[in-house]
Structures are given as structure tokens and as C-alpha cells.
């Protein structure tokens, strides 16, 4: 026989903090593995990288002396500045190109392909995302080489080991992501808006440009940001398709790594991180700013 009572506490003594927290801890413990794992293997290494960027390299050994040399070198040595600006330009133009290429595709897929076939095509273009990035860049090398497919097919262009080559490789990689983002945004446009526009006499072109396009601004910003980040931070395409010429920022980092100048590489990497965070902030300001306007 059990009686039940729920009510105010009889005695004034409140149970200890431990007793009160125990129920929450028994659940919280299950978050610990992921929390700690990412802390140890991601957050700490990154923090270490920041720290490392302030250390010095003397006689091929890293010493923990604090110095700003690594950073001041960036400004004094014009190589770095040039590489930085080149990378910036390349990344920015890649972002624009990715958006330009993906928009018509996403539009066509979202509005002119039968709904039943859409997931299939999505899957087709998404598949390459999960295959080895390295292998795909290598495959591009095959295609772009002087005796590769493009040249053999009649177009006598030198594409390998040029910036254009790098661009092609990278675009083929992240266009898929941008297409997916834009497609999702387009599908979220309320059909009533389209009907209303058509009802008021708009041509398909006007509907696309004036109704659908504005609604995808956020997706465009995110997609562009992705392309930017992936281009700026890439070193695989740069080395494979660019032929080791160190005129891009990521190649500079590689160079520093090759000569074991870890502090130097670290400082460049931090610069890269800051650049990417800035790009992140700008992209969101752009996207959200336009939305509320």
C-alpha cells in the first residue's frame, strides 16, 4: 500500500547540490564523449596552432620564444602579399562563377523537371561529393594535360598547370554543393507567389528573375561562401593542377611545411582562418541584410 504526497518541503533543510544535480549529470555524461573528443582532437590543436604562430624557428628547430616575426614577415615579404591577393581574387571569382553556373541548373531542376525525377538527378550530382577529392583532381589532370582529352578532342589549349585548370577542378567539386543549396531554397518558394505573378501577366523570365531569384539570396550567400572557403583553403587542386608553382596562398603554407617552418606555416594558417571568418561574417551580413530590407 503506497500513499503519495506532492507539496512544499516540510523541513527547511535543502538537499545538497550533488543530490540535486545528479539526475542531470547522469544524462549529461552521455554528451561527454563527443564534447571531449572534439575538444582534444580539434579545439586544442587549433589553439596550439595559434600558439605556434607566435613561436620562432631557429636552426630548423622550433623554440617557444614568443615573436611576432612570423606575422611581420607577411607584410614585409611581397611574396606572401601577392599570393594572398591572388588567392583572394581566385576565391572570390570562383564564388561568383559557382553561383552563376549553378543558378540555371538549380532553376531548371526545381521547376522544369518532373517532381518524381528530381531526387534521382539530385543523387546523381551528389554522388561525386563522396568520392575521393584527390582522385577527382587527378582525373582532371588527365583531361587537361597537353595530350589529354581536351587537346585530343581538337581544342588546343594549354590548361594544365594554369590557374584556369585549378579553377575548373575546383568548380567541378563545389558546384554540386551550391546547386543543392540553391535547389533547396528554390523549392521553398511558395507556389502561390509564382501563380500570383503569372496571373498578373509575368513571363517565365520575369517570374524567374523577379520572384524566384530574390528568394534565393541567402542560399546564394551560403553557396558563395562555401566556394570561397573551399577555394581559399584548398591545396590539392593547387598542387596537382597548378603544378607546384607557389603563387597561391595555400601553396605558400605548403612551402613552409616542406621546409619544416612550422611557426611560419602556422601564422599563414591563422591568417587564412581570419580571412575565412571575415568572409563568413560578410556573407551573412549581405544575405541577412538584404532579407530584412
Amino acid at each position: 500500500m503506497s500513499g503519495v504526497a506532492v507539496g512544499r518541503r516540510a523541513s527547511t533543510a535543502r538537499p545538497s547540490l550533488w543530490v540535486r544535480l545528479k539526475p542531470r549529470l547522469s544524462v549529461g555524461a552521455w554528451a561527454a564523449p563527443a564534447l571531449i573528443w572534439q575538444l582534444v582532437f580539434a579545439a586544442v590543436p587549433l589553439a596550439l596552432l595559434v600558439l605556434m604562430s607566435f613561436w620562432t624557428l631557429s636552426e630548423y628547430q622550433v623554440s617557444k620564444e614568443f615573436t611576432l616575426d612570423n606575422y611581420s614577415r607577411l607584410f614585409s615579404d611581397s611574396i606572401y602579399l601577392q599570393a594572398y591577393l591572388r588567392s583572394l581574387l581566385l576565391s572570390f571569382t570562383n564564388a561568383l562563377l559557382a553561383i552563376l553556373i549553378s543558378l540555371p541548373f538549380a532553376y531548371a531542376l526545381a521547376f522544369h523537371v518532373k517532381p518524381r525525377r528530381q531526387p534521382l538527378i539530385l543523387l546523381i550530382i551528389a554522388l561525386p561529393l563522396f568520392t575521393s577529392y584527390l582522385m577527382r583532381m587527378y582525373a582532371w589532370q588527365t583531361v587537361l594535360a597537353d595530350n589529354g582529352v581536351v587537346n585530343a578532342a581538337g581544342l588546343h589549349v594549354k590548361l594544365l598547370f594554369t590557374e584556369t585548370g585549378i579553377r575548373l577542378g575546383l568548380l567541378s567539386y563545389f558546384c554540386t554543393i551550391v546547386i543543392l543549396l540553391l535547389y533547396t531554397a528554390m523549392r521553398l518558394v511558395p507556389p502561390e507567389l509564382l501563380e500570383a505573378a503569372r496571373n498578373l501577366g509575368a513571363t517565365e523570365r520575369q517570374v524567374a528573375l523577379r520572384v524566384i531569384l530574390p528568394q534565393t539570396k541567402l542560399a546564394m550567400a551560403i553557396g558563395g561562401l562555401f566556394a570561397f572557403i573551399l577555394t581559399f583553403g584548398d591545396f590539392v587542386a593547387t598542387s596537382i593542377l597548378g603544378g607546384g608553382q607557389a603563387y597561391l596562398f595555400s601553396a605558400q603554407i605548403l612551402d613552409q611545411v616542406r621546409i619544416s617552418n612550422w611557426p611560419g606555416a602556422a601564422s599563414l594558417a591563422i591568417v587564412m582562418l581570419i580571412t575565412l571568418l571575415l568572409a563568413f561574417a560578410i556573407a551573412f551580413r549581405l544575405a541577412l541584410g538584404k532579407r530584412t530590407a
Binding site: 582532437f41 580539434a42 584548398d234 602556422a266 594558417a269 587564412m272
Partner: peptide, 16 residues
């Protein structure tokens, strides 16, 4: 961590 450019991640993890 999955969003960090691999170059940076690789560098960071290696130095760690």
C-alpha cells in the same frame, strides 16, 4: 571541425 579547411585541420592536428 568538419567545416575547417582541411589544410588547416591537417596542419593543426599534425603539430598537435
Amino acid at each position: 571541425p568538419a567545416l575547417i579547411p582541411l589544410l588547416m585541420a591537417g596542419l593543426a592536428i599534425f603539430t598537435f
